[in-house]
Every structure is written in structure tokens, then in C-alpha cells.
Design a binder for these strands. Structure first.
Length: 437
RNA sequence: GUGGGUAUAGCUCAGCAGGUAGAGCACUGGAUUGUGGCUCCAGGUGUCGCGGGUUCAAAUCCCGUUACUCACCCCA
């Protein structure tokens, strides 16, 4: 039996990796505009970190984590990025060094869910965490930043959903009120929701089952039971969004499966049909209690994460820029191959990208390959060239070729490839002729 | 985790009233003794996802299994 990739885990081949690189670059570029710096935390943490922060009874912790014992340690491969970042924030006493910290991360996360489109067991998230500011304006700022990222990345039709869970006390009170409302109607709920009644009643609010929806319609709204402080914060967020001209919908039924959220909760959905049920492309909120819960000082925080696989599905494919146009060096005879190898190195020394081809093939096949790669220049080095101390330089766009003394060829080619605007105009001319053909 | 669909060449797919496999693209060679993007010709030895079963005979029918996929669930 052949060894295959583990279920739910995918290879990303170079061609596709290019799209990832563009996505990640756009993310970095954008969040750095807002003052975020990258943090890199380990992929493995103590299991208790996730169990405590995300909630012992959350689905992720209960049945989706990749956990294992190693010697005396109970460890887990991270299912998300926030807990690890907060742990590092506390561990390094960052609150003592600076009043506000803005961190971002990009990396793989692991959850043992049943794979589906846009949902994999190893998946990738890019996210931000802001520590040290409890004010509502940074909530609004972060949401606007998320929208900017999505725009930069080419996601269209993003919709912001906003809710507030209130502080810890409000949340508990609401949970009780909700259970009091639902308990008498238990029999009318879907099977899933009957289970959720004990475990995570808030989840019933965003169930997709029509039976649940009907009941959820009449359920009490968390927004009605917010404390004055929570209400003021929520209004502040909305005022911030309004000032930024950001469209959003208040959705009192928006909830999360993770326990650590307080107050502001938001989710951005892409309206791409391709995403199917996995349309949430960005989710985040406040977690004002986490740092203290990890043994740190009372430091409020807010963060979000984006699922990169989903982003790539939702993102309109844009021109990823001019593809690399290597100079193609073809070694035509075995005796000329070492010279071609050395010549390729010389071009690279001069900063020119080179694809060396020393296979035992017909010149025709090599030129086809050079075309396929989009090379503008092709350098032929064979027995004839070797005898004359020359190389043959072909300009594939102009259909011309010339003999150049091998001692000068490197400088000449580097000059043509790298020299000023010549590259751009040459590239676009070739590009348009290709498009026309 | 639950239910439905799919699984044939590197890629996209055809073939299925059962007789042991095809097309396009891509790739290689030739037409053009060392000159490309077009054209023409030629080139496939693919465990027809895997394992069982029915049958003289299975890619085709049945069962199981795995992967992918859609919905639910969960979430980013």
C-alpha cells in the first residue's frame, strides 16, 4: 500500500504555493500598516492551556484536538493561535515592557474534524492579537483592518456580523435566562439542540435547523441584558464603525464555540458560492479575561483569525504579477555541459535567474521548454560554441539570435535582462504578443 | 461524528443493457543532420481507488472499505 498524505492534510505544490505567498504577503503588509509585529509561538503547547482557555466542554477541546503524552507532559498540537500568543504575552511579562502590544501570526493549526471543502485537519490561520486597550475604538479599528485585508487579498462581498456577549457575569446570566426559555420547549428542538441545551445553549441561537430557528426567534436577546458598561462599549464599537463608514449587521444570535470571548464578537462572511457552508472567513472578538486567567495582570485583549484555505477559495484570482522570466541556458552536447553549468553560475552571480537544461534532448525540445517557462532569452552552448569560444544568445521574443564571445556574454545578458526599463517594456511587449497568439 | 454523491492515463473526462480501456490537454520522437510558440504523423505497460462476492467473463452488477465531495455538525 502506497503511503499517502494523512487524511485532512494537504500538500501545497510550488505552483499553488505562489498564491499562498501572495496571500501571506498581503496580510503582513496590511497589518503592519496598523502597527502589528509578528510573533512566532510553538506549534505544541500544554493541553491545559487550550482546555482552560477554549473551554473544557467546547467541541474543539472535547473531540478535535491532537493531544498526546510525552514523558510526564500532556501536550497538544495547537488548534488555534490565540491561547499560545496570550501565554507568550504573560510568560514574557510583555505588559511590563509596553502598554499596548499588537501581534500577528501566520501558521498551521490542527483539529481532527471531518474534512470538508475549506475545512481541513491541518489548516492555516493568520490572525492578530491586540493586548492592553479595552476601548471600543480598537474593536472598530480591527474590524476595518480585517475588511482591508480581505480587500487586498481579493475577497469580494464581505459581510460583517457583530454582537456583544457582555462581560463574564452578563454571559452567565444570559445563559441561564436562555435555558429557562428553552427548557419548556425542549421537545420542539432538533436532536442536536437538545444536546446543546446542556453543553452550549448559546449555540442553539445560530442553529440552521428550521425547528430551532423558529424557537430562537422568540428567545431573549443578549443585547437586551447587557450591563450599562457592556452596552456603552458596544455603542462605542458601533460609533467607531460608523465613523469609518463600515457596513455591518448587528446579529444578536452570533455566538462562538470558544469560551474565552467577552463583549465584542464579530465574524466576516464571504458571499462566494464556492465556500458552501464554510463561508466564515474571519472570526474574532474580545477576550478581556484571558491574560489574567493565565496568571498575568489584568490586561484586556482582542483578536481575530482568518482561515487561509477559505481565503484562497474566496479570493478572486488576480494577476500574481509578472512571472519570473528566467534565462534559459541549454547545454547542447555533453562536452559543453560543464561550460554551460559554469555560465549559468556566472549569470546568477550577476543576479539573473537561470534555468539550466543539460538533458540529452533535441534542441527543439529545449526551445519548447524555454517557451513554456516564459523565458525571454535562451543561451545555447554546444560543441560549435565551445570551439569558437562563444555562446549563441537567442531573443525568443524577437526571433533573433547572435553570437557573443563567452567572456562578455554574462555581462551583456545581465545588462539586457536587468537593465532599467528595458525589462518592463520587453516583458509587456512579449506578454501582449502572447495574449494575441 | 451523521446522511447523500463521486472514484478510469500526469490533468479534464468518455466508456457501464457484463466480453478485460479511449479522447482532449500535457509530455517525447519524427516531418526540419543544432533552432521555439502553428501544422501533420507516431508513441501509454493506466494494479479502471482498495478488498471481497456473483459470473464462463466485472471498469461495468452486489457487499465492504478508503479517499474526495455536498449538506448537517463544528469552526477560520
Amino acid at each position: 500500500m502506497k503511503i499517502r498524505a494523512v487524511r485532512g492534510m494537504n500538500d501545497i505544490l510550488p505552483e499553488e504555493a505562489k498564491r499562498w505567498q501572495h496571500l501571506e504577503a498581503a496580510f503582513r503588509r496590511t497589518v503592519e500598516l496598523y502597527g502589528y509585529g509578528e510573533v512566532r509561538t510553538p506549534a505544541i503547547e500544554h493541553t491545559s492551556l487550550f482546555a482552560k482557555q477554549m473551554g473544557e466542554t467546547s467541541d474543539v477541546v472535547e473531540k478535535e484536538m491532537y493531544s498526546f503524552s510525552r514523558h510526564d507532559d500532556e501536550l497538544t498540537v495547537r488548534p488555534e493561535g490565540t491561547a499560545g500568543a496570550a501565554r507568550a504575552y504573560v510568560e514574557h511579562a510583555v505588559a511590563n515592557r509596553e502598554p499596548i502590544s499588537r501581534w500577528y501570526y501566520i501558521g498551521p493549526m490542527f483539529r481532527g474534524e471531518r474534512p470538508a471543502k475549506g475545512r481541513y485537519r491541518q489548516f492555516h490561520q493568520a490572525g492578530c492579537e491586540l493586548f492592553g486597550d479595552a476601548g471600543p475604538l480598537c474593536d472598530a479599528e480591527m474590524i476595518e483592518m480585517c475588511l482591508r485585508i480581505l480587500r487586498e487579498v481579493g475577497v469580494e462581498g464581505a459581510r460583517v456580523h457583530l454582537n456583544s456577549l457582555g462581560g463574564a457575569g452578563t454571559r452567565e446570566a444570559f445563559r441561564d435566562a436562555l435555558v429557562r426559555y428553552l427548557e419548556p420547549r425542549r421537545a420542539e428542538l432538533s436532536e442536536d439542540s437538545q444536546r446543546r441545551l446542556e453543553k452550549n445553549p448559546l449555540r442553539i441561537l445560530d442553529s440552521k435547523d428550521p425547528r430551532d430557528r423558529a424557537i430562537a426567534e422568540g428567545a431573549p436577546s443578549i443585547l437586551e441584558v447587557l450591563s450599562d458598561e457592556d452596552r456603552a462599549h458596544f455603542d462605542g464599537v458601533r460609533a467607531g464603525l460608523d465613523a469609518l463608514g463600515v457596513d455591518y449587521v448587528v446579529d444578536a444570535k452570533l455566538v462562538r464555540g470558544l469560551d474565552y470571548y467577552t463583549r465584542t464578537l464579530f465574524e466576516i462572511q464571504a458571499t462566494t458560492a464556492d465556500l458552501g457552508a464554510q463561508s466564515t472567513v474571519c472570526g474574532g472578538g474580545r477576550y478581556d479575561g484571558m491574560v489574567e486567567g493565565l496568571g498575568g495582570p489584568k490586561v484586556p485583549a482582542i483578536g481575530f483569525a482568518m482561515g487561509l484555505e477559505r481565503l484562497l477559495i474566496a479570493a478572486k484570482d488576480r494577476d500574481t504579477g509578472a512571472a519570473a522570466r528566467p534565462v534559459y541556458v541549454a547545454a547542447l552536447d555533453p562536452e559543453a555541459a560543464p561550460r554551460a553549468l559554469a555560465f549559468a553560475r556566472e549569470l546568477r552571480d550577476r543576479g539573473v535567474a537561470v534555468e539550466l537544461d543539460a538533458r540529452d534532448l533535441r534542441l527543439k525540445a529545449m526551445l519548447r521548454r524555454a517557451d513554456g517557462l516564459g523565458a525571454r532569452f535562451c543561451v545555447l552552448i554546444g560543441a560549435n560554441e565551445l570551439a569558437r569560444g562563444e555562446v549563441t544568445l537567442k531573443d525568443l521574443g524577437a526571433h533573433s539570435q547572435e553570437a557573443i564571445a563567452i567572456a562578455e556574454a554574462g555581462a551583456t545578458i545581465a545588462d539586457r535582462v536587468l537593465g532599467g526599463g528595458a525589462v518592463l517594456s520587453g516583458g509587456s511587449v512579449l506578454g501582449s504578443s502572447e495574449a494575441g497568439a
